[in-house]
Computed example of a mutant assay.
Amino acid sequence: MHDIVDTAVAAGSFKTLVAAVTAAGLVDTLKGDGPFTVFAPSDDAFAKLPAGTVEDLVKPENKPKLTKILTLHVIPAKVMAADVAGKKMSPASVSGETLDVDGSNGVMVSGAKVTSADIECTNGVIHVIDTVIMPKG
């Protein structure tokens, strides 16, 4: 079993996420002890953003904004799909903003649908989502 970063790299469907995490300087954080729950947007999720968005976000001058977006996708605890099944909760993300998690019909996270759940890693868990979650503020 690998940590969250190595698992995402090995999966092959998170190239944009891995590039963004690298640009934001968050690789060491997500290789840390955790536990973390990462709602990982697939490459298809990033592709749904307006043209040029990702290219703009990975520029050095946009690192604070990129970091805020990425840390919004991380909860500083291990949360499995079974923990939210049939429930609604609002956990705080690493960015400080709360997420709206609704497990009443599948699992939705702040408008993003979990398409693959419970990918266990040595330092947490990855849930694949179909939409990039953007900060409210």
Rank of each mutant, 00 (worst) to 15 (best):
95 S>T: 03
17 L>P: 07
63 K>I: 03
78 K>G: 00
36 F>Y: 13
71 T>I: 06
98 T>L: 04
88 K>F: 07
78 K>M: 11
128 V>I: 14
38 V>T: 08
19 A>K: 05
14 F>M: 10
135 P>M: 10
86 G>M: 11
95 S>A: 14
115 T>N: 08
102 D>F: 06
114 V>M: 04
40 A>G: 10
78 K>L: 10
96 G>S: 12
66 L>V: 01
83 D>K: 04
65 K>E: 12
107 V>F: 07
62 N>G: 06
99 L>H: 03
38 V>F: 08
105 N>M: 11
43 D>L: 05
81 A>I: 08
95 S>P: 09
12 G>N: 12
42 S>T: 15
102 D>V: 03
51 A>E: 15
7 T>R: 09
54 V>A: 11
3 D>H: 13
41 P>V: 07
89 M>S: 15
81 A>L: 08
81 A>N: 09
101 V>I: 15
106 G>V: 09
36 F>N: 00
44 D>F: 05
66 L>N: 00
13 S>I: 13
118 D>N: 15
37 T>L: 03
47 A>I: 07
134 M>H: 10
12 G>K: 12
40 A>F: 05
17 L>D: 07
98 T>W: 01
9 V>E: 08
133 I>G: 03
49 L>V: 10
108 M>G: 03
41 P>W: 06
11 A>C: 11
30 L>W: 04
24 A>N: 02
43 D>N: 14
23 A>V: 08
57 L>V: 05
59 K>P: 04
69 I>R: 00
84 V>P: 03
71 T>E: 01
3 D>N: 15
123 N>C: 11
98 T>G: 01
89 M>A: 15
92 A>I: 12
84 V>Y: 00
28 D>K: 13
68 K>C: 01
62 N>A: 06
33 D>C: 06
117 A>L: 07
125 V>P: 01
119 I>F: 05
36 F>D: 00
42 S>A: 13
82 A>I: 03
41 P>G: 10
57 L>E: 02
73 H>T: 04
133 I>L: 12
7 T>Y: 06
136 K>S: 14
19 A>L: 10
117 A>Q: 10
43 D>V: 07
87 K>L: 13
12 G>Y: 13
